[in-house]
Simulated scan of single mutants.
Amino acid sequence: MSRLIDQIKKDRITAMKSGDKEKLSTLRLLISKLEKEKVANKLTDISELSDTQAERVVVKSIKELDKEIEAYKNVNRDTLSQEAEKELLSTYLPKPLTTDELKVIVQEIATKTAESGNNIGLAMKELKATIGSRADMGAASKMLKEELNK
């Protein structure tokens, strides 16, 4: 049972009771996306999704909002509601890693990888498993490649 999904459902009920329409709308949309993930994984209930799977859905939703915000800014439209949605969704993710914490993790993985023959594929797999959704994989990948090329 996913604690993250339970929290999202509780927050949805709280938003319903308090009359917070924007928060309720965002949480309903998120639950809808979790339902799609449930179907894709051939599960019977969204509560069967792991926290990791739910986090992936939240991260994907945030990335979609980033693209939407960028598109709105390009045509000089107001992005306050999208930014509010993004802020709300961000509360369901684990605390992001600082650059220093990420560097330490990347250096450890690079050291292990160098000892085992510089296999970048295995290093990336370990990096993804270690940092999950706590850091941008693009930046982490770039750091890892720089570390391995030293």
Rank of each mutant, 00 (worst) to 15 (best):
K63D: 09
K86V: 00
T52V: 14
D45A: 12
D78G: 06
V58L: 12
R77V: 01
L49Q: 10
S81T: 05
L80D: 13
Q53D: 06
L89V: 01
E70G: 06
I62L: 10
L49M: 14
N74P: 00
V39H: 14
T79C: 03
V39P: 06
K86E: 02
E70V: 05
D78W: 06
E64L: 13
K60H: 15
I62W: 05
E48W: 10
T52R: 15
E70M: 08
V59L: 13
S61D: 13
S47E: 12
L49D: 08
A54S: 11
Q82P: 04
S47M: 13
K67F: 01
S81L: 07
A71N: 02
K86W: 02
S50W: 12
K63C: 12
K67S: 02
A54N: 06
T44I: 05
D45Q: 10
T79I: 03
A84D: 08
A84I: 09
E70R: 08
E87R: 13
K60S: 15
V39R: 14
K63H: 12
N76G: 08
S50Q: 15
Q53C: 07
D45E: 11
E87W: 12
K63I: 08
R77Q: 04
N74D: 02
N76C: 07
K42S: 09
S61W: 13
